[in-house]
Simulated scan of single mutants.
Amino acid sequence: MRVAIIGGSGFVGTRLLERLRQQEGYSLKNIDKAPSELFKEITHIANVLDEEKITTLLKDTDLVVLLAAEHRDDVTPVSLYYDVNVQGMRNTLKAMEANGVKRLVFTSSVAIYGLDKDNPDESFPADPFNHYGKSKWEAEQVLQEWYKTHEDWNINIVRPTVIFGERNRGNVYNLLHQIASGKFMMVGKGNNEKSMSYVGNVVAFIQFLIEQYREGYHVFNYVDKPDFTTKDLVALTSKILGKHIPSIQIPYALGMLGGYCFDVLAFITRKKLPISSVRVKKFCAVTKYDSTKMRDSGFVPPYTLEEGLSRMLKAEFL
């Protein structure tokens, strides 16, 4: 199977390429605006906004995995979210059509549901609270409209919750680094549940969709269960690293006030800081999502959530 991964130089894309390279029957191509550290020989430098070049590179392709996205919560200008995540989707679909490619796996996000929702499943109404979630939802709407006139296509959408794993430097890494260093401050009581996804399981699920879901239009939340609370994460980190980890607890209102102060400081200095009101709000929110449909699909994650956390903590902090 000739698979083109758009955005394969990043964290998830690299792990997906690693996994598929170990399987027989795959011919792989990586298309990314950034070079790949591990897969230079199959990487082609191109921006998803360059429709003409993407069209050229998708020649002789059977399936596209679209990972390219602006996803940080401090991207400026905010128009980049919509340029890359929405217009990039339109460009990809046109390039696929020009080459007769009719199979797509797209990584969206549970961010389309918004914060503090009641365990939403795939039928839950979209209510994104930030530009990343809004742009991902708009990209899904582009797909919905496209499928109305392309019913012979196979489109699989994965909405993962926050993804963590070895070599990632995202929000989960920052949280675990603070916990492991003993410089962690618990904002609020720490009882809020956090749905999480281990990267090894996410890429295994993408491969499962490639091989098992070859027809129709499908949408799946991806979450590794059970959902841990923030207090659980502190206790588990302490257990895996084999050391006592003290934590300071501060009220939610005080934490948000500190976040707003960092917002002002970031605005004045024109620098991106590790703390913001958005990040404090996300940290304290309940981000729990239903993954029944994924579990009923027949997919079996190769790792438990605790195994994934253990692999990351040992790789990064021991």
Rank of each mutant, 00 (worst) to 15 (best):
G7M: 09
G7I: 00
T14C: 03
L17Y: 02
L20R: 08
L20I: 09
Q23E: 14
E24W: 15
A34R: 15
A34Q: 10
P35F: 12
A46G: 00
D50F: 06
E52L: 14
K53H: 04
L58A: 05
A68W: 04
A68M: 08
R72Q: 14
R72L: 14
D73P: 06
L80M: 06
V84Q: 06
Q87R: 12
M96H: 02
R103N: 13
S109E: 08
Y113C: 09
K117T: 09
D121W: 00
S123H: 13
F124W: 13
G133M: 11
K136N: 03
E138Q: 13
L143Q: 06
E145Q: 13
T149N: 11
H150R: 04
E151M: 11
I155P: 01
N168T: 12
N168G: 13
V172S: 00
H177R: 14
F184S: 08
G188R: 04
G190K: 03
N192R: 08
K194C: 09
S195F: 06
S197F: 12
Y198I: 00
I206W: 06
H218T: 13
V219N: 07
N221T: 02
F228L: 09
T229N: 10
T230D: 06
K231V: 14
L233G: 00
S247N: 07
C261M: 12
V264S: 10
L265V: 14
K271N: 15
S277M: 10
R279K: 14
K281D: 10
C284Q: 04
V286G: 01
K288A: 06
Y289C: 00
D290P: 05
T292M: 05
K293L: 15
S297C: 14
Y303P: 10
T304H: 01
E306S: 12
F317N: 00
L318I: 08
